[in-house]
Nucleic acid binder design. Structure first.
Length: 489
RNA sequence: GUCCCCGUCGUCUAGCCUGGUUAGGACAGCAGAUUUUCGAUCUGCUAGCAGGGGUUCAAAUCCCCUCGGGGACGCCA
């Protein structure tokens, strides 16, 4: 039994984007590969911005991606007394002091420092506050914060599984706030992220802190805090960030990279998203690209994570999704396809041939949102509307052009179908045999008009299959209809 | 501004540690084959070491500088 423990610790101040989700996934894959445990911790100490609904949405997203946690969710807002307790230890050891600088003062000094091209860091001035000054501040009603004294003189080492050993000069780090004033209770403190993270990681016996690279420069502070609190220092692994298609960092306002949009609207399957996300910032030594859930866990190795940001684009995800669709059993695929279509309000089960058509489409489509169009030829009304639009658009429309140029083919086809009494594939074979002798067109010129007349689309399911899916009457009717439409113009 | 991280085809990446490869793979794109159509499939092609110095017989690989991107420097996390 491995003692490895990792955690995913989001703050419920918005929805998870794909970058956050990948961090969760890497924690999950690492834990499972190592036979360790994964803990979910909701970092909701920012009482103003945190929302319960976000916490719930986060859990839904994790679940739909197949990311499971062995412990939690722990809510930090319910653990305030624990942080207070550990604060007392730090106070006893003289690691903290009260700071009476107001936010306005701090902000003004930061701006000034920046303007003078100096580092905008805290100057530790309240470390040496005189009793008199302190009394004056209190009299003014200033609410203090508690700062951690950065007294280290030796370089602080952050051991990172991905990047190696990184050194930080403690001189570069100002005393930082570990307890801030609680906006809702006038004499109470709330832990800042630094404090709650270190106490919880220590208490929860986290062995590997796997998080985004944006936390890299926080890590030396955390090393100092872990030491002061008497906790062992975990291994760090800072993941390179994921950027959007334009190269910009992903942020919570990018609603279009939300998981539910990808699954519910675009029709990607979770296995594929997992697979794609794993490949964004990591690759196995053998360069494989398609992985099942368990295969991913087996080959995952944090040390193979990349060091640079990766741009998220849908093209490869689309391909990976089509590969995963092919790997699905027919029953599983149909179940999911029906589910997707029904959510779109397309009642597919009523149509007996629909199941057959869906099965054919399995190896054809990339994602489920291609299904409604691909199946629309079943619907007589949708078919007619499509033709009407074509005719209205005239030469601008591909289908209209195909139909017009293929008029002679359609005439011959109509006649041939009328003369035959077959159905399905046999009808198709007889038809092509007859047409071979009656018209000079072949290949594209021959089949495109037939397809367009039958489905109203220039592409779709194999033509032979369409004959299996539509009955004689419909086929005959549509060929006639198509001719009517083009000549009516 | 200071500190930290990063820079290989359009995109995801292998190679870097431990110098010697025609710099490999995949997606996308393009072309051909096949299916007497589209799609799917198969084959092929296009395309890259950010720039400059240095070390070396030899540099994507080691060193330095420059440029570019990102992050931190919050009573957000």
């Amino acid at each position: 039994m491995s003692s490895i423990r990792v955690r995913f610790a989001p703050s419920p101040t918005g929805y998870l984007h794909l970058g956050n989700l990948r961090t969760a996934l890497f924690n999950d894959l690492f834990a499972r590969h190592e036979g360790g445990k994964m803990i979910l911790r909701i970092e909701d100490t920012d009482t103003v911005r945190s929302k319960r609904e976000y916490g719930e949405a986060i859990q839904r997203d994790l679940e739909s991606l197949g990311i499971r946690f062995d412990e939690g969710p722990y809510y930090q807002s319910e653990r305030i007394s624990i942080y207070e307790e550990h604060l007392r230890q730090l106070e006893k050891k003289g690691n903290v002091y009260l700071c009476y600088c107001t936010q306005d003062e701090l902000e003004a000094r930061r701006r000034e420092a920046l303007a003078m091209k100096r580092p905008p860091r805290y100057d530790n001035r309240c470390r040496t506050l005189t009793d008199e000054e302190r009394r004056r501040r209190i009299a003014q009603g200033v609410r203090p914060t508690l700062r951690f004294k950065v007294e280290a003189t030796e370089p602080i080492l952050v051991e990172d599984v991905i990047r190696g050993e990184i050194k930080f000069d403690p001189q570069e780090i100002g005393d930082f706030v570990i307890m801030r004033s609680d906006p809702d209770h006038s004499n109470r403190f709330l832990p800042t992220f630094h404090m709650s993270v270190c106490v919880d990681d220590g208490l929860m016996k986290i062995t590997h802190v796997i998080r985004g690279e944006d936390h890299l420069s926080n890590s030396p502070r955390h090393v100092l805090l872990f030491r002061a609190l008497g906790f062992p220092i975990p291994q760090f692994a800072h993941l390179s960030l994921i950027h959007g298609p334009g190269g910009e960092p992903l942020s919570k306002r990018y609603g279009d990279v939300s998981l539910s949009d990808f699954i519910e609207n675009k029709g990607y399957i979770p296995e594929a998203i997992r697979n794609y996300l794993a490949l964004l910032g990591w690759s196995p030594k053998d360069n494989r690209e398609i992985f099942s859930m368990t295969e991913l866990e087996q080959s995952f190795d944090l040390r193979n994570a990349t060091h640079h940001a990766a741009i998220f684009t849908e093209q490869k995800l689309t391909w990976i999704n089509s590969e995963h669709l092919k790997m699905l059993s027919e029953a599983d695929y149909l179940k999911r396809a029906f589910f997707f279509l029904e959510r779109r309000g397309i009642g597919v089960r009523k149509e007996p041939k629909m199941r057959e058509a869906l099965a054919i489409l399995k190896s054809d489509i990339h994602r489920f949102d291609e299904l409604p169009d691909a199946l629309s030829f079943f619907d007589e009304e949708a078919y007619r509307n499509r033709l009407k639009r074509s005719v209205a658009a005239g030469d601008q429309d591909q289908v209209y052009v195909i139909l017009t140029e293929g008029r002679s083919v359609l005439e011959a086809a109509q006649e041939a179908v009328q003369q035959s009494s077959s159905e399905g594939e046999t009808l198709f074979l007889e038809l092509t045999e007859t047409l071979k002798h009656r018209v000079s067109e072949k290949g594209k010129k021959l089949f495109l008009p037939l397809r367009a007349a039958l489905t109203g689309e220039p592409h779709g399911i194999e033509l032979k299959r369409i004959f299996q899916l539509l009955d004689r009457q419909t086929i005959l009717g549509r060929i006639g209809k198509a001719q009517e439409f083009v000549t009516s113009k």
